[in-house]
Nucleic acid binder design. Structure first.
Lengths: 218, 218
DNA sequence: TCCCCACTTCAACAAGTGTTGAAATATGGC
DNA sequence: GCCATATTTCAACACTTGTTGAAGTGGGGA
């Protein structure tokens, strides 16, 4: 069963362009990609990308937006579940961290290459000095604020700066891990594997949870 | 007083090209930069970059290598200091984390724009699916292995996979923080500032130290 | 003075870039 | 079938790209 992506169904060429662009942008970055390569991978003419999405930059935004909406919905659902399960108490830090991470791994999309490309793309955007700040804010912050609210509640009277910097560390660790750059494979001499996200999951949850817990007021 | 960069002194034009390339690559990524812009910023002819460094890719490597050697030396010194201070016991996790971080902040170079550009460049490389794995390994892993050895000693009988994944989280958090993307400014609505690395320092140290401590066998 | 050398500039090539307007084709309502 | 509209292709423009070979410059040693 296919995912309920906004443009499922008829416009098969439109989706093919998005998929090809997603893969290319993820692998080579915005400037490392040319529209002819995207069109070739999608099996369409160069001009068609322009017809459907306008300029190259608009195509990039469209790629980013498509799965952002889906991912945000999944994460919101996971957060609400965690909140209602713990009610009337706030959920544990670990439960919140898991609510943030689990949607990246569960469901039918774990093996779908499109999502893996998307994760790499997010890492690229998040670490970009050009539009890193603005684009991440635009697409993800409304939801992230809710997660930070939940963390604040769970930790109780925490220092605000410490809270934001902790999330920042979380964000960096997460995007790098899901980008699957192959770095940990080389560093660990084959012991760990970048593409084993399920194996990385518990380690990341533990590391991040402990980081957040360290700012809990005593 | 200027830093003892390998190419201080006579070849002022060579260094100017490296500086300009460093700033451009950090801001726009490898493919987002053209040699004419670098040459213009450096105040030299386009062909001169080719004369000194060969192809564009070789210039990129030269930029990366220049400060890597300096940074690795500083970090090695800091690690050795931590080890000798704690002898005969292993140093604390926090001391090792500080030895890894402090060289990024101390000394005359904190305000030097060149190093800030370099940190952003490292974030770009680290998260790149194209050469992230290979380049980071080539330039930094020999030293990083020594830090991981120290952490293993300090934590005592730790699970190897957990150790490597923890370092991976560390790496992602660190490179994002020092890239100064402006993201935390927007997310925290002006409470935190990307360019206040000194202010971020203690928060990052605490978060990362707690993450590593969480894998210590009980 | 002359020559050798490292360094620097000039001018240009060949390939590739995003973008566009017009033409061709498909689609669906009547 | 017919027409309006949406989609797709074609061909091309104007511009930028990395790279190169030849020419020019300056200084130091013989």
């Amino acid at each position: 069963m296919s995912l309920a992506l906004p443009d499922d169904g008829k416009p098969v060429r439109r989706t093919a362009i998005l998929d090809a662009a997603e893969a290319q942008f993820a692998q080579h970055g915005y400037d490392g990609v040319n529209l002819r390569a995207i069109a070739r991978d999608a099996g369409v003419d160069v001009a068609l990308a322009n017809y459907h999405f306008g300029k190259k930059r608009d195509l990039f935004d469209a790629v980013l937006m498509r799965r952002a909406e889906v991912l945000n919905a999944w994460r919101l659902k996971a957060l609400e579940d965690a909140l209602s399960e713990a009610r009337p108490n706030p959920p544990s830090v670990e439960a919140i961290v898991r609510a943030y991470l689990r949607p990246l791994l569960t469901g039918s999309h774990v093996t779908e290459p499109g999502w893996k490309h998307y994760y790499a793309l997010i890492a690229y955007v998040n670490n970009s000095t050009e539009w890193g700040g603005k684009l991440m804010t635009q697409f993800f912050d409304p939801l992230i604020i809710q997660f930070i609210d939940a963390l604040r509640l769970s930790l109780g009277g925490v220092d605000e700066k410490a809270l934001y910097w902790s999330y920042h560390c979380f964000s960096g660790a997460l995007t790098l891990t899901f980008a699957e750059t192959g770095r940990i494979d080389l560093l660990s001499k084959g012991l760990c594997h970048s593409d084993d996200l399920a194996g990385a999951y518990e380690h990341v949850v533990r590391f991040i949870t402990a980081g957040f817990e360290s700012i809990r007021p005593t």
